[in-house]
Amino acid sequence: MNQTKILFTIFLLLFSSCLSSYNSVKEFVMELDGKNVYRFTLQNKSGAKLILTNYGATITELWMPDKKGNFDNVVLGFTDVTKYRDTTYLNENLYLGATIGRYANRIKDANFVLDKQRYALTKNAGLNHTHGGKKGFDKSVWDWALDEQNNKVEFKYKSGHLEEGYPGNVDVAVHFKLTDDNQVEIEYFASTDQRTHLNLTNHSYFNLNSSNHLSITKHFLELNCDRYLPVDRTLVPLGEINEVNDTPFDFREIKEIGAEINLDHQQLKLARGYDHCWVKNDVDQGTFSKIGTLIETMSGRKMDILTTEPSLQFYSGNFLKGNMGDQDRLFDFRSGLCLETGHFPDSPNQSHFPSTILNSDDRFYSKTVYQFSVIQNGVN
């Protein structure tokens, strides 16, 4: 009888271990604004890890294998979560890995008109508004739920009426999932009690070979985009939607990011490199499809970006300047790049851009996936 119980216990242990190949961990970090801040670690069966915090619904680390099977953190961020609130860093808001809202990117002159009423937003980028204002979603403590069975963390936040100037009470949820095939899935959900504008994204800075402090100019990029949005000197779109033909903005065939980044081109000079929005080729369909691919050949890491969103903001880390960092790793000039899926910047003031209006009877949903894999040689 004892032997039967032992065998049955062993069977249960083996069975339960097969139910999930995941390993999810939650750690307390600090208390802030009356809420607890945690760090969450999601690990899959291959050893890849996604580390997040409910402060700003932020990706702090992302560990992926190279072509030799060695793991490295491929995003810029702080291992010490308290640094996201350290006053020595607040004047250099880089939005490292954070969820951005209510509106990702720039809104000209920090205002828009909706239903014949003008709304004044917080000015936090000169005369403009960017990334949700002075206290956007990136500086808020989110509620959370850890779904260990699906290796997922779900964050929730309620944005109040006129927060940073935006109308309506908005309920937002962002789900982060790490799959066994090394996909990072991000799903966004939202609803409102009043018509408002909404544009959500994740602001991770990627470097697929950060252990060697490789500049992102050595990465290769391909974008499934025939058009891009030129900007003014404050980096707000002019309203034009231009073809990429015969410009440094043509990434339709994969090329090294540094190949043309320093050319004598007005748009590159205005942004000190790339900091522009590219338009997805199937923008009108609203389908979930691939918008781009990033490759670093020394490590062999490859990252495909798939999204339901109509565009991607490619920022080449032009304003990183090495005065911030984590442990022995400084965030130097062009040491990380952002590939932010979302709607166009300044859409509330550009009627010919895809609308970002969320109605009170609508449910907002979007999905972005960063799919990691490895290649052995070249960029194929």
Rank of each mutant, 00 (worst) to 15 (best):
T79L: 01
Y84W: 08
T287N: 04
K156I: 04
L337R: 02
P354T: 08
E260S: 13
W144V: 01
L13Q: 01
Q43Y: 01
L62T: 04
R252P: 08
L223M: 05
L62Q: 00
V279L: 14
I291F: 12
V236Q: 05
P237I: 10
Q313K: 02
E92T: 15
H219R: 06
C225W: 07
L42V: 06
L208N: 03
K67H: 00
A48N: 10
N73A: 09
F220V: 05
R252N: 14
I305E: 03
A173G: 15
F176G: 12
R227F: 13
R301Y: 07
L339S: 05
N105S: 10
D246Q: 13
M30F: 06
L32M: 10
S347C: 11
L294W: 03
G292Y: 03
D326V: 03
N111H: 15
M298E: 04
L221V: 01
D171V: 00
D181S: 02
A190F: 06
I6N: 11
T79Y: 02
S21P: 10
I291A: 02
L178E: 05
F155E: 05
Q3C: 07
V369P: 09
Y55S: 03
Y89E: 05
Y205P: 04
D284V: 09
L229T: 12
H197M: 12
T9V: 15
Y95Q: 00
L320A: 07
Y166M: 14
K177E: 09
Y38E: 01
K26N: 06
D181F: 11
Y22N: 14
G286M: 06
N359M: 11
S347M: 11
E61I: 00
F206E: 00
T9F: 15
N111L: 06
A125L: 11
F11D: 08
T82K: 15
S373E: 02
S373Y: 06
Y228E: 04
L214Q: 09
T356F: 07
I241L: 13
K367H: 11
S24H: 04
Q327C: 05
G317T: 00
V170A: 07
H265S: 01
W142M: 10
